[in-house]
């Protein structure tokens, strides 16, 4: 019998080498499923509108909406640019300020205790309720700024709270490692807290991106004809004019825009987390 003191280190589990994914017909069908559901829905809608002779003032057929969309494109495009500017501006500001204040808030227990209740207050107060006030304060000559502020207020909180939770989520054992090597505060922040918080921050950004669209729409509703020229105002205006197909066109544009902004944040999240975070990992067996 021979006895060896050292064993080989190949103790990795089975399935360490991920099997190459195979594209089967089932996968293709799976991808097509949402499109099929959409087509079925639109088809039924189109059919019912024609069959039941529903007035276009109540519910226009999808084909009518698309026709209006193409015809009204120049106006929609202008409105889109307006809403997009407000939304993206509010989103970016929310991300930057949310991370900044989230880090600041968790940098010291006392700071957190002092300001956290006010952050919550700001969150639970409905923005619609403060909107008229903000518009008066900022001035009707700068409606875009008040809308930016309102949309930011809606989008800010998830960024703040997610950053704050993320900053505190660093693994306890790893904190010990950093303590052992007497890491400076900055290094602890840079190499431990920030990477630990990243998944939380990105989840916050995804929520925020959706909320900034909602914020922009609400702000436009409140500002009304006072200067807003965005998609939400287009919806209100078309409603008053009983131009329902145009209303649906603006709504369609708003959904497409909301979806794209969500898709962009989701993609960023995927790229940044795909190598290590559970949320982006695929089961491999």
């Amino acid at each position: 019998m021979t006895i060896q003191a050292t064993a080989s280190v190949d103790d990795r589990p089975e399935g360490f080498v991920a099997p190459k994914p195979r594209t089967s017909i089932v996968d293709v069908l799976d991808t097509l499923l949402p499109f099929a559901a959409g087509a079925l829905f639109l088809g039924t809608w189109e059919f019912l509108v024609h069959y039941l002779k529903v007035s276009k003032f109540i519910l226009p057929a999808p084909s009518a909406i698309v026709t209006t969309f193409v015809k009204e494109w120049p106006a929609i495009y202008v409105a889109l640019k307006y809403t997009a500017t407000i939304t993206i501006g509010a989103f970016v500001t929310a991300v930057v300020t949310g991370i900044f204040f989230g880090v600041l808030l968790t940098s010291h227990k006392r700071i957190e205790r002092t300001f956290w209740p006010y952050a919550v207050t700001m969150q639970v107060t409905p923005v619609v309720a403060i909107a008229p006030l903000v518009i008066i304060w900022v001035g009707l000559d700068r409606v875009w700024l008040s809308m930016l502020i309102l949309a930011w207020m809606v989008a800010f909180f998830p960024m703040l709270s997610n950053t704050a939770v993320g900053m505190k989520s660093a693994d306890h054992g790893l904190r010990n490692v950093f303590e052992l090597y007497e890491a400076s505060r900055w290094k602890r922040f840079r190499y431990l807290q920030l990477p630990s918080a990243l998944p939380y921050i990105l989840a916050g950004a995804r929520i925020s991106s959706g909320l900034s669209v909602i914020g922009a729409v609400v702000a436009e509703f409140v500002a009304g004809s006072g200067g807003s020229r965005g998609l939400a105002f287009m919806i209100v205006e078309s409603g008053t004019l009983l131009n329902i197909p145009r209303m649906f066109s603006a709504l369609l544009m708003l959904s497409i825009f909301g979806m794209s902004i969500w898709y962009v944040t989701a993609t960023i999240q995927k790229i940044l987390l795909q190598r290590w975070h559970e949320s982006e990992l695929k089961q491999e067996n």
């Binding site: 054992g173 490692v177 190499y191």
Partner: peptide, 26 residues
């Protein structure tokens, strides 16, 4: 001193190399 904890306490976002490099980075 070097310390090995009950758990491996590795940084999930860093490669094996970067994890081992950490004490020097600090």
């Amino acid at each position: 001193v070097g310390f090995v904890f009950q758990e491996p306490t590795l940084m999930p976002w860093a490669t094996v190399f970067d994890n081992v490099y950490l004490p020097h980075r600090l």
